[in-house]
Amino acid sequence: MAEKKKKSEPEYIFVEFNTPRKYRWSTGPYVGKMYHEARMNKKLYANQCPKCKKMLWEPQVVCGRCKVETGWKWKELPQRGTVMQYTFIVYPMWDPHYGEKFANPLPNAMIEMDDGTVIRHFLEETDEKKLKEGMRVEAVWKENEEDRGEGTADIKFFRTIDK
């Protein structure tokens, strides 16, 4: 495709390619277990490192920190936590997986759940002035089971709670 000439600038040609590439990404058994509990029971499950006893979010075959195999020990996580860090996108960005722009604004936070596990997720609160570190939040799930099955995305967002 040719781009129209500006004054005194030579004409330049561009070649465009716009075909989306398709993928079949697997959760594997570890993330799969988390998906299943979220979809069926609206519960957050993670596996536990046998050495440091921390819950692995994302669930994995090896604990990155301890560099040991985790085995298959699962625990349910609490669904309430505290915002450690947050931000919100002001500039709308392109989502390569959906081929459209993200919602805007989109508050995004690292939330320390009540057992110490840290989860990254979106916040319901979009008013910049009401966001602060230390605010208490809880998970809000997608209502219909058929809408769930996308792991952490089965949680719509975290909403502000009093305590």
Partner: peptide
């Protein structure tokens, strides 16, 4: 077709 594993599981 190893759609039963994630890349990390496979490598491990």
């Amino acid at each position: 077709d190893r759609c039963d594993v994630r890349e990390g599981d496979l490598a491990y």
